[in-house]
């Protein structure tokens, strides 16, 4: 076996096995990339639901504590989760925090705004990893993955010999792939 064909064999072998290992990460990075690419159109991490309504402020006695107000207000808007904390932005306003919901109420006018927040489970986790919010050890895993991707890109060029390989059709397609970002850099950068 010549050195050249032995090199080809190892290139294919490593490309194949690293490709298998990179599969899961590639799916995560691709799905998350798609999601955060459209961040101006939607929130890729949370589903936010805003609900406006009213309640009867007359039911709240003067000088009532935040928890006493919550005990009256929460059932009126159908909120079943227990109160976790509260805040008074002004003497007339109250913010009540329950798991997954923030209730802002005006104690004079009776206006209530609810902001229900739910994690988009898979996307939240995918974005967490993709945007490296995990930091710590994940930084090195992501670095390693980047190195593997570069290897897969280079080794992929030499997978096939002949007219469809890098010296034939492959050369044109590779050039096209390099030209595409260059066009956009020229247009927008």
């Amino acid at each position: 076996m010549s050195i050249f064909s032995s090199w080809r064999k190892w290139n294919r072998l490593l490309h194949r096995d690293l490709g298998y290992i990179a599969f899961g990460l590639t799916v995560i990075y691709a799905v998350s990339g798609f999601a955060v690419n459209h961040i101006s159109d939607w929130n890729p991490n949370f589903n936010i639901e805003n609900i406006s309504g009213t309640f009867s402020p007359d039911l709240i006695p003067a000088g009532a504590s935040d928890s006493a107000i919550a005990a009256i207000l929460l059932p009126q808007i159908g909120e079943k989760e227990p109160l976790t904390s509260s805040f008074r932005p002004s003497p007339e306003e109250i913010q009540l925090f329950v798991e997954g919901n923030t209730i802002s109420a005006n104690l004079v006018t009776g206006e209530v705004e609810q902001k229900k927040v739910q994690k988009r489970w898979f996307l939240h986790v995918f974005n967490y990893l993709h945007l490296n919010h995990a930091k710590e050890m994940w930084t090195y895993v992501a670095d390693l993955y980047a190195v593997v991707l570069v290897f897969l890109a280079i080794s992929g060029l030499f997978m096939i010999k002949g007219p469809k390989g890098i010296l034939g059709r492959g050369a044109w397609l590779t050039a096209l792939g390099i030209l595409l970002p260059l066009i956009f850099i020229f247009l927008y950068y």
């Binding site: 991490n45 949370f46 904390s85 008074r88 932005p89 003497p91 925090f97 927040v117 994690k119 945007l131």
Partner: peptide, 29 residues
């Protein structure tokens, strides 16, 4: 963050992307 006196709060601003505070943290200390 709510202040220790009534009706007060202060804004904590971070560099975009460097730190991301999740919306689900509202109501926590």
């Amino acid at each position: 963050l709510a202040g220790d006196k009534p009706y007060t709060k202060i804004k904590i601003k971070v560099k975009d992307g460097e730190i991301v505070f999740p919306m689900t943290e509202k109501g926590k200390k």
